[in-house]
Design a protein around this nucleic acid. Structure first.
Length: 282
DNA sequence: TCAACTACTAGAAGGACGTA
DNA sequence: TACGTCCTTCTAGTAGTTGA
C-alpha cells in the first residue's frame, strides 16, 4: 500500500487524518525584508497568508500571482509553492496553518482551493484584517491560545464565505458523490472503526451499492474503502501505542480487531514493523 | 453520458497451532 | 504475551451492464 496518494479533488491525505474538525498547526506574523522568499517547498497542512501591507509574488502550479495589501493566498498540503517579497515594497503578512477532517470542506465553501488560492478583501470594511490582527494578539497567550485561534479561524472562513457570496450555496450545489464520501468517512471515523465494521455495512448505512462506493473512494481519494479503513485504524493504533498501560491486545480491540494476531499482521504490513517494536522505537 | 448496480474472482481476514 | 505459518472462509475489487 503506497504512502503517497494523489487525489483528484478532495486532497485528503490519510496519513494526516484527524479525529477533530480542525487542528491548528501554526500561526505567526512577519515583516519581511526586501526579496525575502520561501520555497520552492511543500507543507503537510493548509496554510493561509494575509498581506497587511506591501507587495510580493506567490507561485503555484506554474502560475505566478502578483499580490498586494489586503490580499491573501492559500497553500495546500503536498503542493509545491514559492513566495517572495517585493524588492522595493516588501510585504508584511500574517499566517495560520491548520488541518483536520473538515478543513478541505470549509475552505471549499469559502471558494478557497488549490486551483483558486487567492482572496481579496474590501478596504472599506476589512473584517478579515481585524481577524488576523486578533490572531496575532494571541501570541502571548498559553492555555487558551489554540482555542482562541480556532474560533478566529472559523470566523475568518465565515467572513470569506460572505465576501464571496458563497453563503448562498445550497446543498444541491454540492456533488452527490462528495456527500456519499463525507458520510462514509464520518461513519468510519465516528466510533464505527472500532467495531466489527465491513465496507458493506458502510455502503448500507449510506444507501448506495458497495461497488459504487468503491468507485467514489477511488475517484476522490485514490484509495479503496478498505484501504481507507485500515489506514484509519492503524493511524489510531499508532497513537494508542504511545500509552504503555495498554497491551497490544487492548489496542487491537480498540481499533476494531477482535484477533490481536490479525491486528499485528496488518500493522506490520502498513507500518513495516510489528506493534511491539513500533512501541519500543517511540 | 453517467450514475448506479451485478456478478465473478482474487485476496484479505481470521482461526488453529507452534515457537520464542 | 507477541509473532509466524498455513489454511479456509468470505468480503472486497472491479469489469461489464443497465437504465434514466
Amino acid at each position: 500500500m503506497s504512502d503517497n496518494y494523489s487525489h483528484q479533488q478532495l486532497d485528503i491525505n490519510v496519513d494526516r487524518l484527524h479525529l477533530t474538525d480542525i487542528d491548528i498547526y501554526v500561526s505567526g506574523f512577519q515583516n519581511c525584508e526586501a526579496s525575502y522568499y520561501y520555497g520552492p517547498a511543500v507543507r503537510d497542512h493548509y496554510l493561509i497568508h494575509y498581506i497587511y501591507e506591501g507587495k510580493g509574488k506567490f507561485e503555484v502550479n506554474n502560475k505566478v500571482y502578483q499580490l498586494h495589501t489586503g490580499q491573501g493566498f492559500l497553500i495546500c498540503p503536498d503542493i509545491v509553492t514559492y513566495y517572495e517579497a517585493d524588492e522595493d515594497d516588501p510585504w508584511t503578512y500574517a499566517w495560520i496553518g491548520f488541518n483536520g477532517l473538515k478543513a478541505e470542506s470549509y475552505l471549499k465553501q469559502a471558494s478557497l482551493t488549490q486551483k483558486n488560492p487567492i482572496f481579496s478583501t474590501d478596504p472599506k470594511n476589512n473584517s478579515i484584517e481585524s481577524i488576523f490582527k486578533k490572531m496575532n494578539s494571541t501570541k502571548n497567550l498559553k492555555m487558551v491560545k489554540e482555542i482562541k485561534l480556532l474560533g478566529l479561524l472559523y470566523l475568518f472562513l465565515a467572513e470569506l464565505n460572505i465576501i464571496r457570496n458563497n453563503n448562498k450555496l445550497s446543498n444541491s450545489d454540492i456533488c452527490t458523490k462528495e456527500i456519499y464520501l463525507k458520510k462514509a468517512v464520518e461513519y468510519i471515523a465516528k466510533n464505527h472503526y472500532n467495531h466489527n465494521l465491513s465496507i458493506s455495512k458502510v455502503s448500507s448505512y449510506i444507501g448506495v451499492n458497495r461497488g459504487y462506493l468503491w468507485s467514489i473512494f477511488k475517484d476522490y481519494l485514490n484509495l479503496s474503502p478498505q484501504e481507507f479503513l485500515i489506514n484509519f485504524r492503524m493511524d489510531r493504533a499508532s497513537k494508542l501505542l504511545k500509552n504503555n498501560s495498554l497491551s497490544v491486545a487492548d489496542i487491537s480491540r480498540s481499533v476494531g480487531y477482535q484477533d490481536p494476531l490479525t491486528f499485528s499482521k496488518i500493522f506490520k504490513k502498513v507500518k513495516g514493523i510489528p506493534p511491539s517494536k513500533y512501541r519500543k522505537d517511540l
